[in-house]
Design a protein around this nucleic acid. Structure first.
Length: 480
RNA sequence: CGGGGUGUAGCGCAGUUGGUCAGCGCGCAUGGUUUGGGACCAUGAGGCCGCCGGUUCGAAUCCGGCCACCCCGACCA
């Protein structure tokens, strides 16, 4: 086992962690990856966390087909423009050409819109609050494991509402109570909820909101998005209902998604020079027992203790494993640190003699802690919670240390150019897309979002770039 | 899809003036000694040298084409 690449070469480090921690592997299909058991176990825990919240906010799961008639994509002008370049088409089955090509879904607004139009007739049918867990395909030019793959797993929620206000409330409910809550509490990654600028919004949306997280190199990652689609898709697909006043009205729809990209976010928000650091709430293995022995007698003594601790922890609801492989302890320490297991439990002859075990948190390997065997089942859950909080606190402190308020554009450019400082720049912006594009061309920084929580616009405030009157408080950053 | 780079054992690499150039380290297998921060010794297994074509008596090595991967852009969850 070799160390992961130096974090100075961040792209290399990221890939090393993904592959060496057995999260994923390359597949024979370009841009597609295999999610290995360790990565998939993490994803399953993440799915559970999000799905619980999706249901708690009143949504139900359903499933739509993988294939979408090509013509559906064409019905919403902006949508087709946004997605057409990257959709995979099925044009032939066997040796027969299909009468109409089928799109392998890049997202399902269109086919869902088509069906919703048939399901909605009356205001009494509303709202429709559905979600699906599925895979989608977007043939991206450049791929990176988890962050951008040709096929990825996600959930996509699609709702229909009677009024614009209700749709907007839904969009924000998902953003805050599902995405932000999940990412911050379970993944221990602080995020900034905000609205996307016009140029960054979803193809076909009225308004797009996102939560943005900072990665370990100061770049931003869009962790989830929630779109108020207005009446765009409802009009294109004829989702209409007769309201209480007898009028036939066009419905308001939303859509929202979070994907396996969140795994990439987790890796980059918490990983360190030794590898992954899994937030305990979603860690596939929360505690790893490393038995230590020399002689057979010792092994027996230790085995009894390991079994006792393992059983007690399992009963306490801890995801625990014992590593009995024929490797030396030091080798195992390094491997489990690479894989980011939150707590290591060392159990050896010395511990057996004193009736205790040694706990080592992934967040601080020097913080070894001796705990009486009888107290382990009580101590570990508490320690896991401490680690969860520590990871969040560290990520937040890092983000704060890399968040700036540029005094002027010169300072802005300097911050973006210096890799050791690179991060979020908060600034006033005029709201002009041309100005936004110029900033991007000159600094590579884009507007990540316009934070929902922001300072009041002071009198005389001007755009950080063009100097015209300010309109929006924006977060600028280079992004994944 | 543009610019750059790299393809030799599972991984990391050396070898590239054409001719004992099929090699090293790690990993893997077997046996032994070890085991509280990545052990050591011994013996082994493992290669169409990315693919196709050309030049040549002879190609990992030279030429052409293709493919894959990585980095930097543009595009995007």
């Amino acid at each position: 086992m070799q160390d992961v690449a130096d974090m100075d070469d961040y792209a290399r480090w990221y890939q090393d962690v993904v592959y060496k921690a057995d999260m994923a592997d390359l597949s024979p299909v370009r841009g597609c990856m295999v999610i290995r058991p360790y990565g998939y176990a993490l994803w399953e825990n993440m799915v559970r966390g999000m799905d619980d919240r999706i249901k708690a906010t009143g949504h139900e799961n359903l499933y739509f087909p993988l294939f979408i008639p090509y013509s559906f994509l064409m019905k919403e002008a902006e949508h087709v423009e946004g997605f057409a370049p990257e959709v995979a088409l099925v044009t032939r089955v066997g040796s027969e050409e299909l009468e109409e090509p089928l799109v392998v879904r890049p997202t399902s607004e269109t086919v869902i819109g088509y069906m919703y139009a048939q399901w909605v007739h009356s205001y009494r049918d509303l709202p429709l609050l559905y979600n699906q867990w599925c895979n989608v395909v977007r043939w991206e030019k450049r791929t990176r494991p988890f962050l951008r793959t040709s096929e990825f797993l996600w959930q996509e929620g699609h709702t229909v509402h009677r009024t614009e206000e209700e749709a907007e409330a839904e969009t924000l409910l998902i953003l805050n109570d599902v995405y932000q809550d999940f990412v911050e509490k379970e993944l221990a990654i602080p995020v900034i909820p905000g609205r996307k600028s016009e140029s960054e919004k979803f193809a076909g949306a009225l308004r797009t909101y996102s939560i943005e997280a900072m990665m370990g190199d100061g770049k931003a990652l869009q962790a989830a998005t929630s779109h108020n689609l207005g009446q765009n898709f409802a009009r294109s697909f004829g989702i209409e209902f007769q309201d209480a006043d007898g009028q036939v009205k066009t419905a308001w729809t939303t859509s929202w998604g979070a994907s396996t990209r969140l795994i990439g976010a987790l890796i980059m928000a918490h990983g360190d020079a030794n590898g992954l650091r899994m937030p305990p709430h979603v860690a596939p293995t929360q505690a790893i027992i490393v038995p230590i022995w020399r002689k057979d007698e010792e092994r027996e003594t230790v085995a009894a203790l390991v079994a006792e601790v393992e059983t007690a922890l399992r009963k306490a609801g801890v995801r625990v494993k014992a590593d009995w492989r024929e490797e030396r302890p030091g080798w195992k320490y390094n491997e489990w640190e690479l894989r980011g297991v939150p707590v290591r439990i060392e159990i050896g002859p010395r511990d057996a003699a004193t009736g205790q075990v040694t706990l080592v948190p992934r967040t601080d390997r020097s913080a070894k802690e001796a705990v009486a065997t009888s107290a382990v089942a009580e101590r570990i859950p508490a320690l896991l919670e401490e680690i969860q909080q520590t990871l969040y606190a560290q990520a937040l402190a890092f983000r704060q240390s890399r968040t700036y308020q540029a005094a002027d554009y010169a300072a802005f450019k300097e911050l973006m150019a210096d890799k050791s400082k690179q991060g979020f720049v908060e600034a006033w912006w005029c709201g002009d897309a041309v100005c936004e594009a110029q900033i991007k061309a000159e600094t590579q920084a884009t507007i990540r979002n316009l934070p929902i929580e922001h300072p009041a616009l002071p009198a005389g405030a001007v755009c950080v770039h063009c100097g015209k009157p300010a309109a929006e408080w924006a977060i600028f950053a280079k992004a994944y």
